[in-house]
Design a protein around this nucleic acid. Structure first.
Length: 508
RNA sequence: GGCCCGUUCGUCUAAGGGUUAGGACACCACCCUUUCACGGUGGUGAUACGAGUUCGAAUCUCGUACGGGCUACCA
């Protein structure tokens, strides 16, 4: 019997969640659901200098909007807490000390300033990175490998600021099986001696991720490809601390790329598409980044498009609900190569989901957008009818503003130029007659209105087609919207007549 | 620079030794609609390059090129 599936998403609260981040959440979530496992969110806030107030809340708000609720987290509780690494601070040191005792790590007293100097000195106008704190230089630095034991003890007793670094083996090959990429291997000699415990007593990501994955009994550790190069450090820590047998299985997701390489939040402003899941304003810099939610995406579509960026089930199916995804998802079918994000395709997904959604489902979202567009809705059942009529021509929720505006208030502008060139006295007479008929008719539905329209047109010997555009302009103000008689039906008798009367003189 | 990962239409991808290399988005044309869309039909368009293995390679191997990631007391 294999152990229970437990996966985690481990964001650091430093800002908004971008596409790649949400997809990492999604794949974790899907894998957990598929295997009846647990999905945990652990906040990795070990770097106090990068902490951004509000970012943690934002993350949970985003997950809620996406419908990806964690089973355990800061907000959801659970038996493996605390779920915030800063609150687990006291626990990490013992593991680092254990490594020192085992000879796999050591105390280092070099200050950040000293290291900076060495880096600058070594990096003689090359493109940097010639200095690494690794096995080739560690015997020249100020650390417990090098200093006398008494000196080390003295420094420690005097509370001299220090870090604990891993002592990377000098010639070992570390390899592991990535669920997506297969066998991956690294030479340990090429990696530097990463800091495990910082001078402020906080662990770095490397120590914390291993310790917490162990303590939280994580069975599968998934993260973005940017972590692949540091995997050997983590494998080594697992080996030294808890044994390779209890190590989770790894998978590194391909990156989501922007038009020119790595997707950055700046791409959003530059190319006109959102990068974050929801609007985010950095409280420190004031920098604003647009979100998919506010751009007019519905979460069903957002999830769907993210899932298909790097995964497919091998069939030609493209539209999946969250439940279907959880059913079909397998890690083996996740790609190993990065995917460039295509906003046009993203919009297509949204359009498809809006078309599939019921007016009820869309009601609240549409109302939110209409409100922002200055349209207030008082009659929900009227709104539902309107939504049903126009939703298939809306790609983004924001499109509902233009598509429904004229249902709630008379058009502010009448596109007279669309009518004037072909306007005639006969057409004017037609509308006068038609208006009079509408006034007295007892029946008010699209079919009847159309029938009446055609009959009257025939009497006046005008092709009905030539009259439809003017009628549309009167009711809508422009050349758009659903079938014109359906519009009139929803508008009702009084409003329809008022708009005809208002527009008629404008065509002279 | 070093290390790691990757490379099929413009983009997302299917095809895990034998197919006219399939689909979707986008684009173009036509049809439907006397609005704008939806929808329908058709079209343009790809295996990075070079060797090797094989009767046969998009698929396996190697090299080259290109792309990306990492190289902090950041995650």
């Amino acid at each position: 019997m294999s152990k229970r599936v437990r996966v985690r998403f481990a964001p650091s609260p430093t800002g908004g969640l971008h596409l790649g981040g949400v997809r990492t959440v999604l794949f974790n979530y899907l894998f957990a659901k598929k295997h009846q496992g647990d999905f945990i969110v652990r906040i990795e806030d070990t770097d106090q200098s990068r902490y951004v107030p509000g970012a943690e809340e934002y993350i949970f708000d985003t997950l809620r909007w996406c419908g990806l609720e964690p089973d355990e987290s800061v907000q959801h509780g659970g038996n493996y807490g605390p779920y915030r690494q800063s609150e687990r601070k006291a626990g990490y040191r013992q593991y680092a000390e254990q490594l020192v005792k085992q000879g796999h790590a050591y105390y280092a007293f070099d200050t950040p300033e000293e290291l900076d100097q060495v880096r600058k000195a070594t990096d003689k106008n090359g493109e940097g990175h010639s200095f690494q704190y690794d096995h080739t230089v560690r015997m020249k630095m100020r650390n417990s490998l090098n200093l006398l034991e008494s000196e080390v003890q003295q420094l420690l007793n005097a509370q001299t600021p220090h870090v604990i670094r891993i002592k990377m083996p000098e010639n070992e090959t570390v390899s592991f099986t990535d669920m997506i990429r297969g066998e991956v291997s690294f030479e340990t000699a090429l990696s530097d001696d990463k800091v495990l415990l910082k001078a402020d007593g906080m662990p770095t990501y490397h120590l914390a991720v291993v310790v917490d994955d162990h303590l939280m009994e994580i069975s599968h550790a998934f993260r973005g490809e940017e972590w692949l190069p540091s995997a050997p450090v983590h494998i080594l820590l697992w080996k030294y601390l808890f044994g390779l047998n209890s190590m989770p299985q790894w998978a590194h997701f391909p990156l989501i790329l922007g038009p020119q390489g790595k997707l950055s939040k700046r791409d959003g402003a530059k190319y006109g598409f959102p990068v974050f899941a929801m609007n985010w304003k950095d409280p420190k810099t004031g920098e604003f980044t647009e979100g998919f939610k506010e751009k007019g995406f519905i979460p069903e579509a957002f999830i769907n498009l993210l899932a298909l960026l790097g995964w497919n089930d091998g069939t030609e199916k493209e539209l999946y609900s969250l439940d279907e995804l959880a059913e079909e998802f397998t890690m083996e079918r996740v790609h190993s190569s990065g995917a460039k994000f295509d906003f046009e395709k993203a919009k297509w997904f949204n359009h498809e989901w809006i078309k599939m959604a019921s007016p009820d489902r869309l009601q609240e979202d549409v109302k939110r957008f209409l409100g922002e567009g200055g349209i207030s809705v008082t009659d929900d059942s009227y709104l539902a009818k309107v939504i049903g009529l126009v939703k298939e021509r809306c790609t983004l929720l924001s499109d509902f503003v233009q598509q429904t505006d004229f249902f709630f208030r008379a058009p502010a502008v009448i596109d007279q130029e669309a009518v004037k060139p072909k306007w005639s006295e006969a057409k004017k007479e037609f509308f006068q007659t038609y208006a009079a008929q509408l006034q007295t008719t007892g029946e008010w539905n699209a079919e009847h209105l159309e029938q009446l329209f055609k009959e009257t047109a025939a009497e006046k010997a005008i092709k009905p087609g030539e009259l439809q555009l003017p009628f549309r302009i009167m009711l809508v103000g422009g050349k758009f919207g659903p079938q014109v008689f359906q519009i009139a039906e929803l508008l009702g008798k009084d409003e329809t007549l008022a708009r005809i009367q208002h527009a008629l003189p404008l065509f002279e």
